[in-house]
């Protein structure tokens, strides 16, 4: 649709390993402000680092549409029926980390992004769902 849109996975260094908090979340702001595309506009993304899980790193939209606030990174990690989820702090909706689907209302889905370590750097891919 948009001709300048980036359609392949674009890895982007986003923060340092030391910025992460084990078994909890932090928030990052992505986006290259020189590219005027929808997908590359600044976006806040929650990063969860779970040292004992596989994979260890999850990137998911920080905006909770059901609460109308950017608070996902501050949610509690919760395992529900063997699936890793984050419980959003305002109304406690559970969003599945691997695909962003809301367990209480599966018509709602947050964007998820590929994330990986590169030495001490944390990389994420800004196209949602491309992993």
């Amino acid at each position: 649709m948009n001709q300048i849109a980036i359609t392949h996975t674009q890895w982007q260094p986003i923060c340092q390993r030391s910025d992460l908090v084990a078994d909890s979340g932090v928030c990052v702001l992505t986006g290259d402000r020189t590219l005027r595309t929808v997908s590359a506009a600044p976006k806040s993304i929650a990063l969860f680092f779970i040292p004992h899980a596989e994979p260890q790193l999850y990137a998911i939209d920080n905006w909770d549409p059901l609460a109308g606030a950017g608070v996902i990174a501050r949610g509690l990690l919760a395992e529900i029926d063997g699936e890793l989820t984050v419980a959003s702090p305002l109304y406690k909706h559970h969003y599945r980390l691997r695909d962003g689907i809301c367990l209480e209302d599966n018509s709602v889905r947050l964007g998820t992004y590929a994330a990986a370590f590169d030495g001490d750097k944390v990389l994420i891919a800004t196209e949602p769902g491309n992993h």
């Binding site: 779970i50 004992h52 899980a53 949610g75 509690l76 990690l77 919760a78 395992e79 529900i80 063997g82 890793l84 419980a87 406690k92």
Partner: peptide, 10 residues
């Protein structure tokens, strides 16, 4: 068992 949730952790 498991990894815990928003009930047991707090």
């Amino acid at each position: 068992s498991g990894r815990g949730c928003e009930l047991c952790k707090p």
